[in-house]
C-alpha cells in the first residue's frame, strides 16, 4: 500500500442522491472512507442503508444530478467493461448469500479469478482453497452450496469475494438471513478481516460486532446520514433524537 492511496479516500461519495420514483432513498450522501477503515452502517429499516451499500458497486444507480462516487480516485463508470472492471475491485457479500447454485463451492470461489482476472485454473484453485480454509469451510469445497448450512454458505460467499483481492468489501446485512446459532461464525470471520486491515462497509444490526470491529459508524434515517461518529460514541452518547429512539428500540429487543 503506497502512501498516496492512504491519503486519498478509497471510497468517496459526494452529493449522492437516489430516488425510487417519488421516494427518496438517499439524500445528499457525503462520505469519505479511507483505506483500512471498517465503516458500520446502521439505521431503521427503510432508512437507505442497503441502498447506500449497493450504490458503491452500482448494483443501484444513483441520480444523475452531479452527485458522484469514486473508488480509489476513479469515478464509477456508468456501464460496460469499465464498470465490470471496477466491480471486480469491490467485493460484495449479500444478505441471501447468492452463491452460484449450479456450481460447487470451489467453483464459486474460482470463477471470478479465472474468468475476470484470467488467473490460471490451478493457481486459482490453490488460492481458493487457502481462502476457504481461512474462513473454515475448506472441507466443503466439492459440495454444492445447497448442501451447506447458512453460516457455511455465507463464509463461502466471503471467500468468493476475497478471492478477487478486492480493495474494499461491502457487506449488506450479512447475518440477517442466518439462524441465530450461525451468526457468530460469520461475524468471527469478519472480525478477522477487519483486524487484517481490510477496508469494509458493513450494513448490520449486530451491535456487538459494530462495537468490536467498527472504526466508524454511520447512522442513517430517511435516506440521510444523521450521525457520523465512532461506535463507542454512538452507543454511549447518541446526539440526535432519532438515534436515541433507534437505540432505545434495539436495546429493548
Amino acid at each position: 500500500m503506497t502512501t498516496e492511496t492512504n491519503q486519498a479516500p478509497l471510497v468517496k461519495m459526494s452529493g449522492v442522491n437516489k430516488h425510487f420514483g417519488q421516494f427518496q432513498a438517499l439524500s445528499d450522501i457525503n462520505i469519505d472512507i479511507p483505506t483500512g477503515q471498517v465503516c458500520i452502517v446502521v439505521g431503521p429499516s427503510g432508512s437507505g442503508k442497503s441502498t447506500l451499500c449497493r450504490t458503491i458497486n452500482r448494483l443501484e444507480t444513483i441520480d444523475n444530478d452531479g452527485g458522484y462516487i469514486e473508488i480509489d480516485g476513479k469515478r464509477l463508470p456508468e456501464e460496460g467493461k469499465a464498470l465490470a472492471a471496477l466491480r471486480a475491485d469491490v467485493g460484495m457479500v449479500f444478505q441471501s448469500f447468492n452463491l452460484f447454485a449450479h456450481k460447487s463451492v470451489l467453483e464459486n470461489v474460482t470463477l471470478g479469478p479465472i474468468k475476470v482476472r484470467k488467473v490460471p485454473k490451478k493457481q486459482a484453485e490453490q488460492e481458493a482453497m487457502e481462502y476457504l480454509d481461512r474462513v473454515g469451510v475448506g472441507e466443503q469445497a466439492r459440495k454444492l452450496p445447497a448442501h451447506l448450512s447458512g453460516g457455511q454458505q455465507q463464509r463461502v460467499a466471503i471467500a468468493r469475494a476475497l478471492a478477487m483481492k478486492p480493495k474494499v468489501l461491502l457487506f449488506d446485512e450479512p447475518t440477517s438471513a442466518l439462524d441465530p446459532e450461525m451468526v457468530q461464525e460469520v461475524l468471527d470471520v469478519m472480525v478477522d478481516l477487519a483486524a487484517g486491515g481490510m477496508t469494509m462497509v458493513v450494513v448490520t444490526h449486530e451491535m456487538g460486532f459494530a462495537r468490536k470491529a467498527g472504526d466508524r459508524l454511520l447512522f442513517m434515517s430517511e435516506g440521510a446520514v444523521v450521525e457520523d461518529t465512532t461506535p463507542q460514541e454512538f452507543f454511549t452518547n447518541p446526539q440526535t433524537a432519532r438515534a436515541q429512539d433507534f437505540l432505545s428500540k434495539i436495546l429493548t429487543e
Binding site: N57, L59, A84, L86, L99, G112, K115, A161
Partner: peptide, 21 residues
Amino acid sequence: PLGQAEAARAIGLGFFSAARL
C-alpha cells in the same frame, strides 16, 4: 433468482459472461 445475476455482476462479470456462465 435475481441475486444470482447480482452476485455475478458483483465479481466483475459483464452481461454476456454472466448470462453464459
